[in-house]
Nucleic acid binder design. Structure first.
Length: 187
DNA sequence: CTGGACTTTCCTGGTT
DNA sequence: GAACCAGGAAAGTCCA
């Protein structure tokens, strides 16, 4: 009982097999997984309102994930230096929403099942935990009033610029012609 | 200081 | 009825 759900297990395991993630979270202690969930400063109001509810899981699961993430991040961070070169300044620090979403999609550690690829090749993805996504985006922008309603409005503006393309399904989006950096073979 | 890009906030109305 | 989706409108934030 109380073990990780299948999907979560898969998600976590995928970290081990990950072939990309060259320079995202590990290079950015500013917003690493552990920062996000162990540092109270980052979750002031959030802590009181919904706690970690966006994981909609048990305390056990939460702890398990954290342990896994901690060990994994720490372990990996030891070899990070060589990965943090050149232009890779963006990562999860990028100021643009679509880049934030993209990078979250490309890093399972930070993702935590919030976003999921629907069709990797076509760049179609689904927002699994809308509330959690909004919270994270809010963290990034230091805005604790962010909601999925507002975040999605911003995403809708991307249809106009070709960053995203419309998909006629709830919580599903698709990267458009003008979005870059998400293709598997171009990473 | 100014203008533009990119949201953020709010809202009305429609859909699942 | 809750959670989304569509966009218009207007205000706010950055940055060149």
């Amino acid at each position: 009982m109380l073990s990780l759900s299948h999907s979560k297990r898969v998600m976590l395991d995928s970290v081990t097999h990950s072939t990309f993630l060259p320079n995202t979270s590990f290079c950015d202690p500013l917003m690493s997984w552990t920062d996000l969930f162990s540092n109270e400063e980052y979750y002031p109001a959030f802590e009181h309102q919904t706690g970690y509810s966006f994981f909609n899981d048990t305390e056990e699961t939460k702890a398990a994930i954290k342990d896994y993430a901690d060990s994994n991040c720490l372990k990996t961070s030891g070899t990070k230096s060589q990965d943090c070169h050149s232009h890779s300044r963006t990562s999860l620090q990028s100021s643009h929403l679509w880049e934030f979403v993209r990078d979250l999609l490309l890093s399972p550690e930070e993702n935590c099942g919030i976003l999921e690829w629907e069709d990797r090749e076509q760049g179609i993805f689904r927002v699994v935990k809308s509330e959690a996504l909004a919270k994270m985006w809010g963290q990034r922008k230091k805005n604790d009033r962010m909601t999925y309603e507002k975040l999605s409005r911003a995403l809708r503006y991307y249809y106009k610029t070709g960053i995203l393309e419309r998909v006629d399904r709830r919580l599903v989006y698709k990267f458009g012609k003008n979005a870059h950096g998400w293709q598997e073979d171009k990473l």
